[in-house]
Amino acid sequence: MEIPYTVEARRDTGLNNGKIGIWLFLASEVMLFGALFASYILIRTGSSSWPRGDTILSVPLATFNTLVLISSSVTMVMAWASLMRRKLGTFRMYIGGTVLLGLVFLIVKYFEYSDKFHHGHFPSTDNFYAIYFTLTGLHMLHVAGGMAVNAYFWGPGAKQYYTNPEWFTNRVENSGLFWHFVDLVWIFLFPTLYLL
């Protein structure tokens, strides 16, 4: 038995199953991060004092990380574009680059976190740190998840290219949608936590 429309698009919707699935998933993610942002606004507006992010957190490191994530989004679309051109070698280079940039992001985050811990700042210190660690921690989990999927497509998953390149391209596109979403969340997290 085969499930219809895993690869080819259904005529009346113009979409394959995976594309709808990933967008629905992203819709739920929007609500997840939306709830956290709403909580942030509520707690911040309700507290008597709130520090500016740049007096506590390292803006240069975060700016660097923003640039890293944006670059990784570009390598991700380039990976997909290479598959559209049926160039597996270029795809592997780009998707590998995406994973590496993700790794750089996590390493920078590791230094940020350990610096905070070193100075005795923990989630329990105050609600600024509580929000900071919760939001960035959850975001980091998403980065790690996206990296795992992309690493799979770089490694063992790439075998599918030889049997069904079209399906493989679709899957990479969907993984890319998730990756861009993670980037998008960071684009909002960065000014919220670091600059305001």
Partner: peptide, 11 residues
């Protein structure tokens, strides 16, 4: 389920 559960997950 899709749109109401994530806020509880966040909570």
């Amino acid at each position: 389920l899709l749109l109401a559960f994530p806020p509880l997950e966040a909570a």
